[in-house]
């Protein structure tokens, strides 16, 4: 049923060459195929056997190895925020609000979105290229022929690792952002770390901190899902691998930004 629908769509595409029609068909075809991918994936996640060893390997590969990059990006964000806001706050006579502003902007938005986009660049490209190369060299077919479910072994482990690691990486980005924000601030106007932290977290509540951090699990889901999907449907040799890697980054980054808009509003409603 599924394959006949896809075949019909392909046949319709061949007989209707206008570019707009082709674009629309490809657009809906992509979402349709993603739907089938997700249904395979759901079964693979819940049915035994479970690939714990590969999951642990992916936690290290996707999570731990992204830590330096995420920490650096978080630190840079803290430095820039401190530099940019310092002069503005001074001109309004609100210099004492700098720690609070820095902590809030990093914890609520800058930390999560920077982490999402940085990990999307590093991890989505990696997964897209790795699975794409495995697909075009028939390694995924070989896995299936050996009665191993590639949705379970390759996709589910990577997606779950992304979902679990993104909030943890966000915490690291937040920590580095706040720390280097303090370093930058104290270089121009010395302030103790203790005082900076006390001022910074004075008004911060549970709602300011935890929901934005955990929303990055959704970013992780987007990165893992899109990258695995694009990789496992790669075709056409080296060029196909390149397409899979590039599209994995572009689509997941775009979806992260769109999801962020929705999630920010949702968090505002659910955690007023």
């Amino acid at each position: 049923m599924a394959s006949s629908t896809a075949a019909d769509l392909r046949s319709a595409r061949e007989t209707n060459p206008p570019a707009s029609t082709v674009f629309l068909i490809r657009f809906f075809e992509w979402f349709g195929e993603l739907g089938f991918f997700c249904s395979h994936l759901l079964r693979a996640v819940f049915l035994p056997p479970y690939e714990f060893r590969e999951f642990a390997h992916q936690l290290d590969e996707l999570g731990s190895k992204s830590l330096p990059l995420v920490a650096l990006a978080g630190a840079a964000t803290g430095v820039v925020l401190s530099l940019e806001t310092h002069d503005s706050l001074v001109s309004f006579g609100a210099k004492s609000l700098l720690p609070e502003l820095l902590v809030l902007s990093i914890a609520k938005e800058s930390g999560p979105i920077i982490t999402g986009l940085i990990v999307s660049g590093r991890v989505a490209a990696g997964i897209g290229a790795e699975l794409g190369a495995m697909k075009v060299t028939e390694q995924i077919d070989a896995m299936e022929a050996s009665a191993v479910d590639p949705y379970k072994y390759l996709a589910a482990t990577r997606i779950l690792a992304c979902v679990l690691m993104l909030p943890l990486l966000t915490l690291a980005a937040d920590f580095c952002g706040i720390l280097f924000g303090w370093v930058t601030t104290t270089l121009t106007e010395p302030i103790s770390l203790q005082l900076f932290i006390e001022n910074g977290f004075k008004q911060v509540t549970f709602n300011d901190f935890l929901p934005p951090t955990f929303k990055t699990a959704v970013f992780g889901l987007i990165i893992g899902l899109v990258a695995s999907f694009q990789g496992m449907r790669a075709h056409g040799g080296t060029e196909g691998v390149e397409r899979a890697a590039t599209s994995a980054v572009v689509i997941s980054s775009l979806f992260i930004i769109l999801a962020d808009v929705l999630l920010v509003r949702l968090i505002q409603v659910v955690f007023p």
Binding site: M134, T137, E138, Q139, D141, A142, M143, A145
Partner: peptide, 10 residues
């Protein structure tokens, strides 16, 4: 199944 290009996990 023996694949044409062996398809070993590289």
């Amino acid at each position: 199944f023996l694949f044409q290009n062996s398809a070993l996990y590289d």
